[in-house]
């Protein structure tokens, strides 16, 4: 998939501003960014359900403007909201979705047990979808997206709103898909999700791409190796913000703490101790994608 100068405007608002990216067959590619960064608009253009305002886009070697139906026939789509058919059972949801793709009845019926198994919903096959939990609905939507054996699956915030166990179950299912060689495109505003799943990702902010690479490359380039988080006692924050100048390679001042970047955490810790600034706590950790995001956009991803 190739996008060049991809742009989407809704009236005055520019949702996606001339972005370029490539996605290779078989990889897991992520769009990381806060709500409103343009991730969903990008996904909808790739899914051939939203016309481009500008630029060019090739999906599965076709142009969504002219071959929309052909592209959609080979895609699986997991939208941000669970668009399950509330008036039908779990099995009928899968069945009718296969029919929307024009699959013969017998073929759809053969495929349903595999997908129920994949989604771990076999014992809920005849339930109405209205009684399913959020995690089960999500797994049903993912299974539904696979009914047509797609070459590429688009997942818009696959685990938003799920509890930790349900998220891990979804991740596990997605890992299973990548083992089968399916190309995955996903959007997320969770760092751990991006680190867990993505081979490569772009960081989006305010309708543009601000960085691109593997999670490891991005961390090495934008965050460094180690991080020291310093918190201050009440009333001493201002002193903390100003007194730590010059320590480490870079500092990020947040409302409740200061984050110091460097290569050697021990050295950072001792520098803070010797600065004379009154400190409530210090925490050493490995640099993460969240630090990358903070550096690139100047704000935290999940406030």
């Amino acid at each position: 998939m190739v996008a060049r100068g991809l742009t989407k405007r809704f009236g005055e608002l520019t949702a996606v501003d001339a972005i370029d990216f490539d996605v290779h067959t078989g990889e897991v590619f992520g769009f990381l960014g806060p709500n409103g960064a343009g991730k969903t608009s990008t996904m909808r253009m790739i899914g051939a359900v939203s016309p481009l305002t500008g630029g060019t886009l090739q999906v599965l070697d076709r142009d969504p403007a002219t071959d929309g139906a052909e592209i959609r026939a080979r895609l699986g789509v997991v939208p941000q909201e669970n668009t399950v058919d509330e008036e039908l059972s779990v099995t009928d949801n899968l069945y009718i979705y296969g029919r929307y793709f024009g699959m013969p009845r017998a073929q759809v019926r053969r495929r349903i047990p595999e997908l129920l198994e994949f989604a771990q919903l076999t014992d809920r096959a005849d339930d109405k979808v209205t009684v399913l939990s959020g995690g089960m609905k999500r797994r049903l939507v993912i299974a539904r997206a696979l009914i047509n054996t797609p070459s590429m699956v688009l997942l818009d915030e696959p685990t938003t709103g799920l509890d930790p166990q349900a998220r891990h179950l979804v991740w596990d299912r997605l890992h299973e898909l990548t083992r089968q060689g399916v190309t995955l495109l996903l959007t997320t505003h969770y760092m751990d999700e991006a680190e867990q799943l993505c081979d490569r990702l772009v960081v989006m902010s305010d309708a543009t791409i601000v960085a691109e690479g593997s999670p490891r490359e991005l961390i090495a380039t934008y965050a460094g190796r180690e991080v020291l988080e310093v918190r201050f006692p009440p009333g001493h924050r201002y002193a903390g913000w100003t007194g730590l100048d010059g320590i480490g390679s870079r500092r990020e001042v947040l409302a409740d703490r200061v984050i110091i970047y460097g290569d050697d955490a021990e050295q950072l810790t001792s520098a803070v101790t010797h600065s004379g600034v009154e400190v409530a706590s210090m925490l050493v950790r490995r640099a993460s994608l969240e630090d990358v995001f903070l550096r690139l956009t100047g704000r935290r991803l999940i406030e």
Binding site: G68, A69, E70, T83, D85, Y97, Y100
Partner: peptide
């Protein structure tokens, strides 16, 4: 409410 058509339009249906 049901977003039913959004689901349909993600398939080859127009």
């Amino acid at each position: 409410w049901g977003k039913l058509y959004d689901a349909m339009l993600a398939t080859p249906l127009t």
